[in-house]
Write a protein that binds this DNA or RNA. Structure first.
Lengths: 223, 223
DNA sequence: TAAACAACCTAACGTTCGTTAGCAAGGATT
DNA sequence: AATCCTTGCTAACGAACGTTAGGTTGTTTA
């Protein structure tokens, strides 16, 4: 029905569960039930519960980094580099919203040495963004009063997208990236009227923020 | 040593633990150890583990709402109303960063009917922000291309502050609010040079984003 | 001075947890 | 035809979980 390996199917199902219930609150029996089998059977495919989390976290870290590396090769000014980095981040995030949520929220349950390794990756990633901002700032291309805070606000805004993004929505990842980039660079609000297109996301991509608990996953892989 | 009731001390300690380890991964024995007593002893003061979470979540919901109500009474234009709302939100958040983090991240572990009640509150709160943005937009005071996305980005930016905010830092909540408001309204980046004060938070308020796992809590209330 | 209360203890309950051992059926490979 | 590999099962392990029962102490109230 689906050309993923059994292990990858387990990972996929676990990702959905980890996102909606959290890693610690998801039991192996929950996962097994969602897969339509017994808890012990999972261990034919995986070594441990944590191995699943590790695979999700480090796979996503890789994807975010690969995208960023590609974006940074854009030969352009800092503003365009920043736009490209934002777009890359949102592309990865919107392609795998559940895995991104787990990556964002559940990494703290990694055990050593994975935890430290992961934190290092996160820090490096963040630093790339900070660096782009710093370059544009010192070169005078734009002015950022507080580079640290700007970096953190930027990543915060991007990383919360998994909270409301719905793949079924009308906005493409490109449109989201476009809008969000503009809001981040120019402010969510602008004094003068621009393109009068009102509320493009009115029927799109959103669920109300709080509904991340919604747990529609049932027996996805049952036969 | 501290004029909180024993119950409030437990709540305080639990808040720190829930923040750093997550609700589900924090056991009553963890909490008891942090308080310097036995797990069973906690039940002289509280009815259940979840009661603690309920108290934290709904108390914070109240505080955020009270602040917002006060801010909305500001008779001013939409921009000033928005600034006041942002400031109020950040005031509550920076005064109780740990409780805010729990409020943000752990509410999904509430059971019914508390979960539904809580979600309603969150939705209402979000709606107040959306309303302010809408008013400014339709009155022509400013232009927002996408009200929904603007609201979500705004709240995302604010709510991630607990991730990096350190009370010991140099920036006061007012300064954070000021900077963040400007970034949100005008963009993190600006084309023309403004006040040349560079990086006010350079030695301040931050820890690197990923360190929210840091778990320095030990025996706080041990005699 | 007796009663009430707050704070904590030990012991233990039933349940759930992640995981292991050992086995069986079916398909693919040799 | 024999072998292996994949996929799943039942049964069970020891540990950890949230919580209750019942008792002891010292302090406050009547």
């Amino acid at each position: 029905m689906n050309n993923l390996s059994r292990k990858d199917q387990i990972e996929q199902t676990a990702t959905a569960l980890f996102k909606s219930r959290g890693y610690a609150a998801t039991s192996m029996r929950d996962l097994a039930t969602a897969m339509g089998l017994e808890a012990a059977s999972l261990y034919s495919h995986i070594k441990s519960k944590e191995e699943i989390l590790q695979r999700i976290c480090f796979r996503m870290a890789n994807e975010f980094f690969e995208g960023l590396d590609r974006a940074e090769k854009t030969i352009a000014n800092s503003t365009e580099k920043l736009r490209a980095a934002i777009k890359s981040h949102l592309t990865v995030l919107t392609k795998q919203p559940a895995a991104s949520a787990v990556f964002q929220n559940e990494w703290k349950h990694l055990s050593e040495p994975f935890l430290t390794d992961f934190q290092k990756l996160r820090y490096d990633y963040e630093n790339h963004f900070r660096q782009i901002i710093k370059e544009g700032n010192t070169s005078g291309e734009f002015t950022v009063r507080d580079e640290k805070m700007a970096t953190l606000m930027l990543l915060s805004s991007l990383n919360f997208v998994h909270t409301w993004y719905k793949p079924e929505g009308k906005l493409t990842p490109e449109q989201i990236s476009e809008t969000l980039s503009n809001m981040l660079l120019n402010g969510i609000v602008s004094g003068k009227k621009r393109d009068p297109t009102p509320n493009p996301s009115e029927e799109g991509n959103f669920e109300i923020t709080f509904s991340e608990t919604g747990d529609q996953l049932k027996q996805i892989h049952q036969n």
